[in-house]
């Protein structure tokens, strides 16, 4: 199947309005600490896909795409990886001073279709969508760019890992993500494909949903410079999510779905 053909199918699928994009589940990583001192510092990190934050209740997070960058940009190996029924976990030894970035960046295309009456799914690089059988029906395809990040700092926070790559949604810390406290203004900038993104909707949800009646989401929108500013009233672990849908530049008629998520710790002042 070539791209043109696919696009026709995609258009068809879109026309049917059958694209089920809504994914209620949230994917996240939860570090044991984000601010560390001492010469022998480790963090242990849980990963899960769940509805409620931060509870293990649905699926473990797959760690295939996990990438860990040291403060100097070196690739760090995750240790003690394990996958349980509801969560996965790994450890990271923080041998350098500064900020480590733990991330998963997923790019490519995702498709659902029917083949001989069977529902099928396919995902892969955009340039390999011709792997989808030509006789597939009910094809729904979208381009994906999703990024999930967690930051942990031993000693003084550092910024070397925040150089934008120009791909997907990225966070530029005007306030360092490991320097968040209640009562002090926090500001972040968001880029889409390297450019400041106006009008992005941000969602922040604090840990411990089980113990309160209202989720209490914080909703924010980026300004013309792609910035948001806020003051956290309560300390805790927060899950940040940004989602954006735009037309794909690579697959005619398909949507490109971009997302960014991060787990941020806010400490009491």
């Amino acid at each position: 199947m070539n791209i043109k053909r696919l696009s026709a199918c995609a258009l068809l699928a879109l026309g049917l309005g059958a694209v089920a994009t809504a994914q209620a589940h949230r994917a996240w990583m939860l570090p044991s600490a984000t601010v560390l001192s001492g010469d022998n510092a480790w963090v242990t990190v849980d990963g899960a896909v769940s509805n409620s934050l931060f509870y293990f209740e649905h699926h473990p997070l797959r760690l295939e795409r996990l990438e860990i960058l040291s403060p100097t940009g070196a690739q760090v190996e995750a240790q003690n990886r394990a996958e349980g029924r509801y969560r996965s976990m790994f450890d990271v030894e923080l041998t350098e001073e500064g900020t480590y970035t733990l991330q998963m960046h997923r790019q490519g295309a995702f498709a659902r279709y029917q083949l001989d009456g069977e529902p099928k799914r396919w995902s892969g690089p955009v340039n390999r969508i011709d792997e989808i059988p030509a006789n597939a029906t009910d094809l729904q395809v979208s381009e994906i760019d999703s990024r999930m990040q967690v930051f942990v700092t031993r000693g003084e926070p550092s910024n070397a890992n925040f150089k934008p790559t120009g791909q997907g949604i990225e966070l530029l810390p005007l306030t360092h993500p490991n320097d968040l406290v209640t009562e002090e203004p926090v500001s972040f900038q968001f880029l889409v494909d390297g450019n400041p993104a106006e009008g992005l909707s941000l969602l922040l949800i604090r840990d411990g949903i089980r113990y309160r009646d209202q989720v209490g989401e914080i909703e924010l929108t980026t300004n013309a410079e792609g910035r948001v500013e806020l003051v956290f009233d309560e300390p805790g672990m927060y899950w940040l999510e940004v989602e954006l849908e735009q037309p794909s530049q690579h697959i005619d008629g398909a949507k490109r779905r971009l997302s960014y998520s991060a787990t941020l710790e806010v400490l009491p002042l």
Binding site: V35, G38, A41, V181
Partner: peptide, 22 residues
């Protein structure tokens, strides 16, 4: 031993942020 007592310096969280971490 091994300077291990520094592991909890971050619990002085205000001072750690203002100075200790540097």
């Amino acid at each position: 031993k091994d300077n291990e007592g520094t592991k909890w310096l971050k619990d002085l969280s205000l001072w750690w942020r203002r100075s200790g971490r540097q």
